[in-house]
Design a protein around this nucleic acid. Sequence first.
DNA 1: CTGTTAGCGCTTTCAT
DNA 2: ATGAAAGCGCTAACAG
Lengths: 352, 352
Amino acid sequence: MIPGTRRRRHRHEKVTLSDVAQAAGVSAITVSRALREPEKVSPALRETILRVVEQMGYVPDMAARALASKDSGLIGVLTPGLTSYAFIAVMRGIEDRVRSTDLRIQYANPGDGRNDDGRKLRFFFSQNPAGIIYVGLQHDSALDDLLRRAPCPVVEIMDVSHAPAEMAVGIDHRLAAEAATRHLLEQGYRRIAMLGASWDNRSKRRLEGFQSVLEAEGLFDPSLVLSIDSYTSVGLGAHLLDRLLSDHPDADAAFCHSDDLALGALFECQRRGRSVPNEFGICGFNDFDYAGVAFPSLTSVRLPRYEIGYRAADMLIRATGGGRQAPTVVDLGFQLIARQSTARNAPKGPTG
Amino acid sequence: MIPGTRRRRHRHEKVTLSDVAQAAGVSAITVSRALREPEKVSPALRETILRVVEQMGYVPDMAARALASKDSGLIGVLTPGLTSYAFIAVMRGIEDRVRSTDLRIQYANPGDGRNDDGRKLRFFFSQNPAGIIYVGLQHDSALDDLLRRAPCPVVEIMDVSHAPAEMAVGIDHRLAAEAATRHLLEQGYRRIAMLGASWDNRSKRRLEGFQSVLEAEGLFDPSLVLSIDSYTSVGLGAHLLDRLLSDHPDADAAFCHSDDLALGALFECQRRGRSVPNEFGICGFNDFDYAGVAFPSLTSVRLPRYEIGYRAADMLIRATGGGRQAPTVVDLGFQLIARQSTARNAPKGPTG
DNA sequence: CTGTTAGCGCTTTCAT
DNA sequence: ATGAAAGCGCTAACAG
């Protein structure tokens, strides 16, 4: 009753394997087997043991298990985009694939900016992971080396535009950007801007694609490439479009590095009374769920994000069993989804 | 050159503490100390040791460390909403607070629906976590008991409408819903619907608040409460509003359980040519970044999600040091942000 | 400040 | 099918 006088909890003398063994009248190893390889224990014993386990509320100590078996059952997912909307679908894919196994997932954010991917990777290695899913920002040779000598299988995901250390699943971001840019050209836009948030590997690839297509037409203007190094967001999209139109009122379209930027751009156009798609075309990237629901709906590039996650986990799980194979690259492909926001001269421009 | 003939890697004879010790001509424990409590080792030795560590590429084995010290340095974050947009800000808060420590975070999704929170919790416990951040869906007494006898500090986050086992950080969802509903009434809306996606604890709390305010005015109509049990999304918001207006054309406002539903509702109104806010009011929840950027901008209830995460991690870290205190509840409060989507009779209705 | 001894809880290997 | 012994790599507790 008297506050502050509560006895400390957190004391629960931990139930160990030998406790269970003793209670069940068998040796520790038999309990261990009953839990992990039930078929190697006689049915009768097995049942007894499992009952005792249940009764005593025994839970294996993962640290001890990992130490003894050199297998943590841990899949490490390492990405700077951990807290990004785009990564949610990837996580779902990974989780769904892993759910039926007894592996666990540990996410880690290698910290923004600084080149400490190496540190984080090393750290992961120190946990005897069963596998690692890695989303690289940069890709210098030191990192490549590190991945190559990883103590477990590694799948690099999202981008497949360069040879992976071992396995990779994703799409070719350069090609995706080319397709989007070409689409804008086909719709008759000429002063096309690019709105982006950060300049990681993939963004750079997209810029390359964007630039090459426009340069071929003599239409590339570097001053139409806008970015701020911060979290991508709808608000940022509005801000960038505002800047774009203030400085370059003649810009007539934007290819955005993500749909949230595109949505922000759309709102800003509406606010300025600039008709989308007739006076301004918008193409996003990622095909987030709202792209198809927006009014007008947003043209975007669909990435199979869920599938990338699912497939990566799948490859990892398979690789865990067998030995090493030669480098494997899986390109899951993208899809340009043309919608109203670039449908110039379409039946009816919804906005302006 | 011949593919498939590559020698198996993953072999790197692991460098252990004693390897380093031997190379440095000291005992293992000294190396251990040099790494964890540098001030307890003479500067000269320390430097030598750290150099050798670097040279040999030694990385501590976390499993061994956890086993020996009974401290995994792991903070478990357990939430069914791991892959939800709303949780991203919470994660950022947690990560930011934890970054400066040597703790690590392990996220886990207790699986959708089924009542296996208990299993997941037990599993976490088996890793000797330093602390646990828990987002509950349900809150039965069995679970409460489990939390109460956790082997580490536990912070329950998001909702503070009931007494926690130990510590809690969040807001009162019932009050938040009451505020939102009252706001809609004040703006003159009368046939107010509620659009939601799932019926977890917090959603139920919000429904209670919504219902009580409307009932006090004799305006509650259960047939205006719509929900589907699935991921919340912009598309779902559009769908629910479509259903609402088809069945109840006289509905004149909606309180949405999340801003993505609200945004979808807005788009659907625009599509139907129903003016927001004059012919229909929309109030969201969460105050996602786009709420303020949308056109018209969306009225919403702001939750301090980042702060909740940061604070939860902070409390955990503090609790790690000291012993147990009496149950602690921190209500971080919400804020109703009135914007255009409920500004009936405002200077200028942007849409219709 | 540095070292010795013991043991964390489990699994491996080898017997039986 | 079951068990005994040994040890995974590290740190706690105590000595010196």
